[in-house]
Design a protein around this nucleic acid. Sequence first.
DNA 1: ATAATTCATATTGCGCACAATCTAATTTTG
DNA 2: CAAAATTAGATTGTGCGCAATATGAATTAT
Lengths: 160, 160
Amino acid sequence: MDSMGIIMARKQTAADQALRLDNQICFAVYSTAHAFNRVYKPLLDRLGLTYPQYLVMLALWERDDVPVKDLGERLFLDSGTLTPLLKRLEAAELIRRTRSTEDERLVLIALTAQGQALREKAKVVPQSILAASACSVGELLAMKDEIVSLRDRLNAVLGE
Amino acid sequence: MDSMGIIMARKQTAADQALRLDNQICFAVYSTAHAFNRVYKPLLDRLGLTYPQYLVMLALWERDDVPVKDLGERLFLDSGTLTPLLKRLEAAELIRRTRSTEDERLVLIALTAQGQALREKAKVVPQSILAASACSVGELLAMKDEIVSLRDRLNAVLGE
DNA sequence: ATAATTCATATTGCGCACAATCTAATTTTG
DNA sequence: CAAAATTAGATTGTGCGCAATATGAATTAT
């Protein structure tokens, strides 16, 4: 009876451990994403951007004149998120949304002169974040690669 | 002039690299959080919970009869997020919200019998996530610790 | 060529997430 | 003790994030 009790107690402990908030990598990722957001906020306020808008601008600074779909694939976001966000960026005159004449299903997103110009102001952002992370570039890059590889495995499961 | 040109080109490249989407650890964290959310969704649908609600339940399964503030500190969320979320959990009869008689500023959150019972059904969740991550427990824990340490450094900067 | 399917985007509805503001209760201070 | 400051929580408004659905254009299959 006692030995059974011990076995049960150990089994419970294993399952209980798995349900502990502290042990959940997902909560670590979730809460870190929020922490980043809060660190970015004052920096991005100066640019007049939210963090998701900043991500869209980063993507466009690399390559613009692209359909919404393309942005969605690069950022892992769908049209329900991007359409209103892009309309706000258009209202801020950072981008233009034009229906493609070749394939009228496509809405092409292009930077305005202002949108291009904002890139210069944005250059100070990454170094501020680096400082806040109190981490070396090497450590951060290594960690980033691990996280990305985890993300890609998760997304692979979803694709099945 | 040519050497100056090279120097400028190198400087630009360094700044440009920092603005690349791929190089941003924050985007890695952000997109991984979304990937986790999408993997959790079908599992949590069976429990009738969203991911943030699941986090609240995890916290309560560890310790309930706590004020909203306490939950907020454990989850890094504020009352603007928690109040409506907790009202939905109350509507689902998983928790009870009662104003403390000792300090009437406090709203104490306690699990109902249903809320307690849900814990058993939730025990299958972590192992499903582990499988989806295609990662060993050891690797995940190591990664989790790194991410948490990064999060805590970011939060420390915010606290200044 | 027409019908069926697929595709890109938009819309709606719900649930976070957080800043800013408000109310009411407690604590601190003079 | 009374005034001031602090605290806990609720409310409001804005912006994601995504599921479900709708619309219209392009592709394909017949």
